[in-house]
């Protein structure tokens, strides 16, 4: 199902959660709404679901205006941040809920629920109550419950936020595989840029109630439209007024044309990579990311004076670019945003 969100505004009291936001999501895509907390990403998702009503603007699903439609009439599946399990029902009944509401025949319900429980690996747990499950299992139950009604649009609010790192990575890959197999248009909200990069086709980066940029993971990383996007999508250092990614900083032992003298404060071994913390003449601090081999070759240690250069080709040219480059293959902003 395709989504078109047009000029959505939403206030909570004095707080402006969404400020004239427009977004198009193509059918079959997996889009991430990425931003810090308070950026309006969850509100946008809830407005698409019909759980919140926008102050102004329209929501079109498959070209049909659903702005005033109730959530139950939108053909969506929604996975809540804390899963919202039905506490008084078994895992089986949780997953069966949507089918029972639709008054499907008993046998059909049983077959479909068993199929879904197998898909999410919860067959053994079918008779348990949600509070007996681990976080990851509860999350998969919530997914199965949302998928049971064959939604044409799957909306996930911080689906992996409450899980520990290992489970999170595993579920992320699992969700991506599920999306590839079932092809349901999916929108997920996350504040984790790595998660957005790994799982989605398209990322909409949000900040303070506006969409900063829409593009493929590579586009938003390599060609960030605004300093905010650059800073949010990966680590950055500010060097003489430029925003630079640490891996775009090169380090040498002798002076070179265009290089700046810097004091090496710390050398941090991160496994294959080594992070250097540098102090620049103006008092700015910067980071450089080298491989272990490079660091050993240069025989670097804290207290050394080194010369650094940077490649700022990936940085947005200040002041911020207001019209993002033409969006990714699945989504594009409908108006200029900043």
């Amino acid at each position: 199902m395709s989504i078109e969100v047009e000029s959505i505004t939403k206030h909570f009291g004095e707080f402006s959660a969404l400020d004239d936001v427009s977004l198009t999501v193509a059918e079959g895509s997996l889009t991430a709404l990425l931003g810090p907390s308070g950026s309006g990403k969850s509100t946008l998702l809830r407005i698409i679901a019909g759980l919140e009503a926008p102050d102004t603007g329209t929501v079109l699903l498959d070209g049909k205006d659903v702005t005033d439609a109730r959530p139950q009439d939108r053909g969506i599946g929604f996975v809540f941040q804390h899963y919202a399990p039905f506490a008084h029902m078994s895992v089986f009944e949780n997953v069966a809920f949507g089918l029972r509401i639709r008054k499907r025949p008993r046998d059909e319900v049983r077959t479909r629920v068993e199929e879904l429980l197998a898909l999410v690996g919860l067959t053994k747990w079918s008779g348990q109550r949600p509070h007996q499950l681990s976080g990851g299992q509860r999350q998969r139950m919530a997914l199965a419950r949302a998928l049971a009604v064959d939604p044409t649009l799957l909306l996930l609010d911080e689906p992996f936020g409450a899980l520990d790192a290992n489970v999170r990575g595993e579920l992320r890959r699992w969700l991506r595989r599920l999306h590839d197999e079932q092809g349901v248009t999916t929108v997920l909200v996350t504040h984790d840029q790595e998660e957005a990069m790994e799982i989605s086709d398209t990322i909409a980066v949000m900040n303070e109630g506006k969409i900063e940029q829409v593009g493929s993971p590579r586009e938003v990383y390599d060609a960030p439209a605004t300093p905010f996007v650059m800073g949010f999508i990966g680590p950055v250092s500010r060097v003489e007024g430029h925003l630079v990614r640490p891996h775009d900083v090169s380090v040498s032992l002798g002076p070179e044309p265009g290089a700046v003298e810097a004091m090496l404060k710390r050398v941090i071994y991160l496994g294959f990579e080594v992070r250097l913390e540098l102090e620049l003449p103006g008092g700015d601090t910067a980071q450089a990311l080298l491989t272990r081999g490079q660091t050993e070759q240069l025989e670097l240690s804290a207290g050394d004076i080194v010369y650094v250069k940077w490649d700022s080709a990936h940085a947005p040219s200040p002041p911020a670019v207001h019209a993002p480059p033409d969006g990714g293959e699945h989504a594009r902003p409908r108006t200029a945003t900043a």
């Binding site: 679901a49 139950q72 599946g77 809540f80 809920f97 009604v149």
Partner: peptide, 12 residues
């Protein structure tokens, strides 16, 4: 949240 979840699953 549980009530909202029920609504998204089609319950009146």
């Amino acid at each position: 949240e549980q009530e909202q979840a029920a609504a998204t699953l089609g319950a009146s």
